[in-house]
Structures are given as structure tokens and as C-alpha cells.
Amino acid sequence: MKEILSTKNTTIKEFKKLHKKKYREENQQYMIEGFHLIEEAAKAGAKIEWILFNQRGKTEWSDWLETQPENLFIYVSEEVLESLSELPTPQGMIAIVKMPDDKKKIDLSGGWLLLDNVQDPGNVGTMIRTADAAGLSGVILGEGSSDIYSTKVLRAMQGSNYHLPVIRKPLAEVIDRFKEAKVPVYGTELNPEAVAYQQITKSEQYALIMGNEGQGVAAKFLEKTDKNIYIPIKGAAESLNVAIAAGILMYHLQNND
């Protein structure tokens, strides 16, 4: 088992770079923190390349560590773990994980959530987690949407990225594929042509587009949809948070009966 006790260690410096998207993409690696997320990654068969833990991690999760290959282990000091952590209180364990292949063919069956330029990490992570809970087939992130391998998105997803495909692709290309396959595509917009979501009949297959927090779904995508839908506001609030709205629509559209 390796041991690193200094924050000036070259390996630790390289791991720390993974907090930036540029280096994550260059190295095709990302960092997850905390036992729950690491356990979810391991259960899903994600390629864990290193498991770093301090004394707390070794003590609290010794039973689980005994089930993992020892050649992945790096025992680190509390100071080293704190230098890598982005949490107020480090949880004693960090893993370095290989990014999955993002070029797999999309199976159009079931329900799909499409995100257009959704920039808030908490919103992106929450929507992916809700898509998982509602039983959707997958999530597609279009241009401008937050990187799912950032710490905030990973925390918000709570491991749901290991339960369903989360793919980054140009939405124009994806929408055209759904249209060619006769899969209904719904945009979200409040305008005279839009209909209340309750008027939409559930179907086995569909695609739902959610847009930017301030600007909504881009007009070029709304022009391609089969129908644009909205959620009626009963109270005085001007609008709903995009993640809350997505949850309402996904649970309505998903045919789980």
C-alpha cells in the first residue's frame, strides 16, 4: 500500500488539478469524495484507479476496504486529504475514477431528459437524480450545461450517474434522431401555443427538454418540438426552479403504471 503524507507530493498535485474541467478532460479522470459515492461507483463497476483514505477512513470503512484491491490504496495524512477535499468537513476517503466512454449509441426507448444550457451544478445534479428516481432511460446534456464531473454536480447526483446513462451530445442532433424515430419531443415554454402539462398523454417513449435557468429552452429547439408544455402557477410565484419543474414533468410523463 502506498503512503503519501505531504501535500507537496507530485501525485497529490496532479490529483488536485482534477478540480478543474480542463484537467479532467485531459486525463479522462474525475474525483469523488465520501464513502457513499465511492461505494456506488464500485457497485456500478466504474473503473476506480485510486482510493485515498486517512486514519478516519481506514477506521470507519475498514470492512469495505478489505473487499477492494489493495493495489488501489493510498494512505494519506489528514492534511493531504484536506488539501484535496472541497467539502467543509472531509469525510476520510477520496477516489480517482476513470471517465466512462461517452460515445455509446443512444437507445431511444423509454423517457429521456434533455438539458439545454442548464448551468447551475445543483440543478443539473438534482435533475439527473430525479430522472433516476422516476425511472427514465437516460439524460442528455447539451451545449453549455454544467459538467457532471464537477464536485457540486457529483454531490447532487448522489450516485445516480452510475444508475442510468448521462451523455453529452449536441441537442440538435439528438432531437432530430428522436423525431426520425417518431418519438414525441416536448419543450418547456410559457407561450400562447404551449399547453398545460396535464393535457399531455403519457407514452412509453418521449423526450423532455429543460432549459437555462434564466432564458429557458433555446428558440431553435422549441421550433423542433412536437408540443411545448408548461406548469400552471397557482400562487403568486413568478416561476418554478428548473429542477422542481423537471421533477413534476418527468413524474407526469413517465408511464410507470
Rank of each mutant, 00 (worst) to 15 (best):
L81N: 01
T201R: 11
R155K: 14
E213Q: 09
Q254D: 03
W61H: 15
W64F: 14
G92C: 06
L37S: 11
E173L: 07
A218N: 11
K43M: 11
V242P: 00
E14Y: 01
Q158S: 15
Y251V: 00
G216A: 12
L5E: 14
M127H: 01
G92H: 01
D107Y: 09
L72F: 02
P184D: 12
H252D: 12
E70W: 06
V166R: 00
I106T: 12
M99A: 02
E173V: 08
Q198P: 00
L164R: 07
I48T: 05
D120T: 05
M157H: 04
R24C: 09
A156S: 15
D132G: 05
Y75I: 15
A134I: 15
I48F: 00
M31P: 05
P121C: 01
A194G: 08
H252T: 12
I244Y: 07
N117F: 00
E193D: 15
M31D: 07
A181V: 13
H19T: 10
W61E: 11
L222P: 07
A245N: 10
N54P: 08
K169R: 15
G34Q: 10
W112L: 03
A237R: 12
E14C: 05
G125K: 00
E25A: 07
A41V: 05
I128A: 02
K17M: 15
R168A: 11
R129I: 04
S137R: 14
G57K: 02
Q215W: 04
D147G: 01
S150Q: 11
K13S: 15
D101G: 02
K8C: 12
Q215N: 13
G57C: 08
G57W: 00
A41S: 13
E14W: 01
